[in-house]
């Protein structure tokens, strides 16, 4: 009896999580998949069917948006990595006593509502805003130049909004790295650059990996940045889903698009883990 209890203990302890996942993840997921296959309209209600037409239509009509989403997601994640790594590195290695203050500063913009932050960017990037205005005034940029509603405005917004989400996991792994390892590498004829490549970078790989997943998945599915900073040419799949849901109230289409996005993300993540993840994590695990 005792032994049985001992064996069951981990399952019993994790029961609340299982229930949570079941209620708030698995059931909605199934209902979404069901909706994707349903026929009907909001007034008469929906009946589950084996109608896969929605998927075919979604795929045919919105290939561009899917591709764009993945491009924006990849580009913004790579840029975020490039920006947040030095910041996390600096805080972890040179932050001294003020590490938590610096982290707090990184987090600070996130105490402001997401939408407000994006609107602030709209203001900053606007055609006569304080960024472009002066540059145009002194003739560095042509009058007609604009950033808003280009893909770079959207990618920029995505980068800005995911910055802290990348800094944190990077900081966590970098902070754990024993500085004496760098000494040892220097002692063994590694220049600071080599020591970084051979010691710091591999040891921080789990953070790079985790942050990439976190930021990439969030950014591919994002729609707020594209809606506020982009234009008609920057529609991401998130925008299409939002439109289908709220504008045309085509619930089956919205559900089909969501399901497809989810599937594609899962495939992308699987490929990504196959290529980078296993190695990075194994290297560190032992």
């Amino acid at each position: 009896m005792r032994r049985l209890r001992g064996k069951l203990a981990p399952y019993l302890l994790s029961l609340p999580s299982w229930v949570y996942l079941l209620v708030f993840f698995l059931i909605p997921l199934c209902s979404m998949l069901g909706m994707a296959l349903a026929v009907g309209n909001p007034l008469t209600g929906y009946i589950l069917s084996d109608n896969f037409q929605e998927f075919v239509t979604a795929f045919n009509n919105y290939q561009d948006a899917f591709l764009r989403s993945f491009w924006y997601g990849t580009a913004s994640t790579v840029i975020t990595l490039a920006i947040s790594y030095p910041v996390a590195y600096w805080i972890a290695f040179y932050g001294g006593r003020h590490k938590s203050t610096y982290l707090f500063l990184v987090m600070l913009p996130f105490f402001v509502s997401f939408v407000i932050r994006v609107l602030a960017w709209e203001f900053i990037l606007s055609d006569q805003g304080f960024l472009l205005g002066p540059l145009k005034a002194i003739g560095l940029l042509p009058r007609s130049y604009h950033l808003l509603s280009t893909q770079w405005a959207v990618i920029g917004g995505l980068v800005y909004n995911s910055f802290a989400y990348y800094v944190l996991p990077l900081y966590v792994v970098l902070e754990k790295i024993d500085r004496r390892l760098v000494r040892a590498a220097n002692d063994l004829y590694a220049s600071p650059a080599t020591a970084f490549m051979k010691i710091i970078l591999p040891l921080s790989a789990p953070g790079v990996f985790a942050g990439f997943l976190l930021v990439f998945v969030t950014n591919v599915g994002d729609f707020v940045n594209a809606a506020l900073l982009g234009g008609p040419g920057t529609y991401m799949i998130g925008n299409i889903i939002q439109d289908s849901f709220f504008e045309s109230q085509d619930y089956p289409m919205a559900a089909a698009l969501s399901s497809m996005l989810m599937l594609m993300l899962m495939i992308a993540i699987l490929l990504y883990s196959k290529v980078f993840g296993a190695e990075a994590i194994q290297e560190y695990a032992a």
Partner: peptide
């Protein structure tokens, strides 16, 4: 010059 560190400082990866 090479050093045998008091803390070993072996590269864990």
């Amino acid at each position: 010059v090479n050093t045998v560190f008091q803390s070993y400082a072996l590269f864990p990866h």
